[in-house]
Design a protein around this nucleic acid. Sequence first.
DNA 1: GTATGATAGACCGACGGTCGGTCTATCAAT
DNA 2: ATTGATAGACCGACCGTCGGTCTATCATAC
Lengths: 227, 227
Amino acid sequence: MARTLDPAAHALRRDEFIDAAQRLIQSRGYDQMSVQDVLDDLGASKGAFYHYFDSKADLLTAVVDQIIDGAIGVVAPMVADPGLTAPEKFQRVFGGIAQFKNARIELLQGVIQAWISDDNAIVREKFRQVAVRRLSPLMARIVEQGLAEGVYTAGPPGSVARVLLSLMLGANEAATELYVARRAGTITFETVQQMLAAYGEAFDRILGASSGSYPITDEATLRLWFD
Amino acid sequence: MARTLDPAAHALRRDEFIDAAQRLIQSRGYDQMSVQDVLDDLGASKGAFYHYFDSKADLLTAVVDQIIDGAIGVVAPMVADPGLTAPEKFQRVFGGIAQFKNARIELLQGVIQAWISDDNAIVREKFRQVAVRRLSPLMARIVEQGLAEGVYTAGPPGSVARVLLSLMLGANEAATELYVARRAGTITFETVQQMLAAYGEAFDRILGASSGSYPITDEATLRLWFD
DNA sequence: GTATGATAGACCGACGGTCGGTCTATCAAT
DNA sequence: ATTGATAGACCGACCGTCGGTCTATCATAC
């Protein structure tokens, strides 16, 4: 044998590529970012890059995974908290997402053009896929708890969680469209409010919870983004 | 003045490119189809192609539009039929989709690999976008009718329609995943049944309709695809 | 000192898209 | 009816970009 691999050092160097790629994807979008751009940003070589990643798509997967990891890190403790009821947990999750976004409003507003670009579709899809795969179990646990608490009337937690995730992703998609349309002045604030309220209402009904318990976003957040 | 543009002839020639592209996308996926492939298929030249289309993406848009046009052509008459109640209309729409797919089961099973491929994401996204834009008005009309008939309790038809479409697209996405997983033998038929039933149940609840009125697919269709 | 990880960078092939140019149908003026 | 101007339809060589490969080189741990 000879030289041994240091996993920590390896991961560290790999992360440099991931971080650089994340910045570039945020500013230009995935398709508009070339591998060479990442190389230039780090002063690295093709050989180095392909030593750590199989392909450009592999790099994207790593970027998405890292971001979702961050989200899971925030959400998981809320879900595990034994002192919270199921509805409280859902409210924390939604509230947490809103807070996260509000705190980064400038960044996100700058990123949105690249995000919705046609040839950024792969990124959006990867996000959907990873989000469903990683968040489903957490959602299912909340639903299960709610059923046990008797505050929800719904079917099997796993299936219902999947349906709710479809809805949340749909709401997110809709919100993005609405943001763009509102900016362009083609719709009113009230239209936005009504649309997102419909998603919240649907959330309630699917769970069989009391009406209005899950507004996708609160009034203040809505004003912040759409007014 | 000079030579005049014959819109009919122009459209006819343009359609040839669209049809060829549709075949190629179905067999290989969008990314794996090069513009040259389309050219070879028709015996046409680069110049001819770029005379009719701005870009490869422009061609894709045309293909998706044509397919959705076909679907609208089938669904629109059902929605316009004055002799049907709202629930009947929804059942016709779902039934029509199932029939359409069942009649083309071999084709679709062959297409699925290309469809779910990572670099076919643009196609799937375009489908989502166009489907939402074109089908929303039709769905909204059915919801509106159901509210008038007093069989639904739901919010503004436009918003609810959008939510329902998110759900339908989510169900479609889930069904595709389930199909692949079932084929791979990693899940049981009952899992599939339960998952899709959850989407049907959610559909009911959002509309405030009586339970079980909108099974996304019937037992026979489910057996056909997942057994 | 040698096996292996890490890095460098020349190079390749495919692809989307451009561009100068040809051919032909149509219309207006003669 | 002839002719010349114009514009649609089409051709295919060519270009730049980009993802990915391959060989060579250096550093380091054993």
